[in-house]
Write a protein that binds this DNA or RNA. Structure first.
Lengths: 360, 360
DNA sequence: GTTAGCACTCTGCCCGGATGAGTGCTAAGC
DNA sequence: GCTTAGCACTCATCCGGGCAGAGTGCTAAC
């Protein structure tokens, strides 16, 4: 059996209707509401075929039919190609502008926009920095026994930790250590900061001068500890309660299952990490890895810094999701987010302007 | 009518039963299960009195009776006085230890413990820093046009912002500005950093030297902007889905109402800010300000730094809450949290050790 | 003051019939 | 040969009645 033009038209009508109404749809409704110029009986025959092909299922004998994940997949693939985002682009631009002071807040605001516009639950997987490179380490005195270690990456993301020192560290020694650490570690990926590297660098230093700052070792060890924290990925949601608006989750048990799953950020992170690195990914129902979200679809986009994917932002909702709307929304948002990140967090000073100066 | 001893005993039995079973309780059950040595008929008479006194209500004629908020209040007041926390103290101590690297994570972990132990939803209102005083400001170079401003408070909480400068700032000028800002602003409360102060300090500086660092103004303005962010209070939850376990919220509408309310962190913050500053606060049902949580109770404890309340941590659940358990849990946790904050975030160097040195 | 007994009330549950939406099949029409 | 009208059949949902059970309030006896 072939999936001819008419079948596709009917399928599209069914999917679209089911997305918006949430109820199984029958042949009569299709033939009446969508004027395809054929009677309900004909639609009935076609629907029977579509069921055989695996695009539709009947919840029970006398109910209408409901699209399967396979149907959604077909629908989405057709949509993605020619989805426009003009509808939202301007609005998003306006809202996002002026909220870019702090990276994390900026991204969270973006998530809020997503959930508010779409009425689904939005998520953000926050920066994953293992891959990024160190630019500078600076120790700042706080009090006699405490000092602050500020770690700046090449992407200008900053992390800081308070170090408790057993013995006070005078300010000039602090600067020496800062400079030495920066000098030795600049350009290295955060994930490469491990014991091996530590041993290597220590050896190097002690081979030059017999005795060096006695605090250096301590500070270095604390730096390694801090780096461990970078490995944790965090997930943040907005519009969690939107889920409860959909009849799919009017049953508390179902809602609980999904919400619990999402609350366990590790699982959710693993869902998002598993995806291919495409800019826009749609994962429908059974395509998802975990049972708990096999009745959901996840639409996610990447955000990048210097061309490197540092996080994801997107939406999760029932498979009966308004893909058309959602996809253009996510597309538009991620485009704007990426543009703003480029404009605000990338270090033009080094790469571009220096070049230009030389040329000019 | 008086609330005699027997009435209190019966009331306590009813409250306790209702808390654990979640179902209206009848006279027969009371007289059988809790051996008070009286028949169901007597209990019936007493219950009738208790209803008249406003401690009980009947959902409908042939149902048992259910405690009112007034009954819970009585119950809680009796409990709070002699609640012990021995049961949890040791466990909590063990878990909390070793998670204290970073203030915010530490507090969030504490919230997780709360929700996991109690099966209610826990919350944290994160540090409110308006009242705390500045200790140090340090500018750190990042790239030609960008610099990092690190702001350290007296409580060793750190905040940082990336500043985009129109014109490059050389490192020595940066240090001069850092020192000047620190010198002028040290000991001032964050909330006092406003335009007036700016004008005042500017005048002072320019009266001494005719021209000063031209970047000083820019940096100061950016500092003021940053301070605005401190005014925002954030609320964080753990165990949100626990709510769905209670029959009170088996209805999705109800659940949605509550969850939506909590998701709007502004309202939740305002609930917590409104409370008196007591170390342990219990707010039952109608005692709450907002309609959405008039069927909930909120148990919260403060956490402090240098004796100043900087946040709250606690639990929210149905008024039919296991107060006994919850109160000892929150008490035990907050005690430990406060102890660990004292040990790890307070600047002993200044206040204590200096004293001791002099004495020794 | 306490208790046993009894009539009364009200909810929740189960059951069966009615309703209606939708299907599949068949036979007639273009 | 595809399309369509007609019809029997299926199944979920809704509704009302009847029944069981829990609990009360009242009364009268102890």
């Amino acid at each position: 059996m072939e999936l001819n033009d008419r079948k596709i038209k009917i399928l599209k009508a069914i999917v679209s209707s089911y997305i918006h109404e949430g109820e199984a749809i029958g042949s009569r409704t299709i033939s009446k509401k969508y004027d395809l110029g054929i009677s309900s009986a004909t639609v009935r025959n076609e629907m029977s075929d579509l069921e055989e092909l695996g695009f539709l299922v009947q919840p029970h004998t006398s109910a209408g039919r409901v699209p399967t994940d396979k149907a959604y997949r077909l629908y989405v693939d057709k949509i993605i190609r020619n989805s426009s985002m003009n509808k939202y682009n301007e609005q998003i631009k306006k809202i996002l502008q002026g909220e870019i002071d702090e990276m994390e807040k900026f991204i969270r605001n973006s998530a809020r926009i997503l959930s508010q516009f779409t009425k689904y639950t939005s998520f953000v997987m926050t920066p994953q920095l293992k891959e990024s490179k160190l630019k500078r380490i600076q120790l700042v005195p706080i009090s006699e026994n405490k000092l602050l270690m500020v770690i700046v990456t090449e992407n200008n993301l900053v992390k800081n930790v308070i170090l408790n020192m057993k013995i006070p560290v005078p300010e000039d020694q602090m600067n020496r250590i800062s400079n030495l650490l920066t000098q030795k570690l600049e350009g290295r990926q955060l994930k490469s900061l491990d014991k091996d590297l530590y041993n290597h660098i220590s050896k190097e230093i002690y081979s030059i001068r017999e005795s060096f700052d006695d605090k250096f070792d301590d500070v270095f060890m604390l730096l390694l500890n801090t780096m461990k924290q970078y490995e944790k990925v965090d997930v943040y949601y907005d519009g969690l309660t939107n889920i409860l608006n959909y009849p799919e989750y009017s049953n508390t048990e179902k809602a609980k299952e999904l919400l619990s799953f999402m609350e366990d950020k590790k699982s959710m992170a693993s869902v998002l990490m598993d995806e291919t690195g495409e800019d826009l990914a749609v994962s429908i129902g059974n395509e998802n890895k975990y049972d708990e979200i096999k009745q959901c679809s996840v639409v996610s986009a990447t955000y990048k810094l210097n061309g490197m994917i540092i996080g994801k932002i997107g939406l999760i909702g029932p498979t009966r999701m308004d893909y058309k709307n959602v996809i253009s929304m996510v597309k538009a948002l991620s485009l704007n987010v990426n543009r703003l990140i480029e404009e605000n967090y990338i270090d033009i000073a080094r790469s571009d302007t220096d070049e230009q100066k030389r040329k000019g």
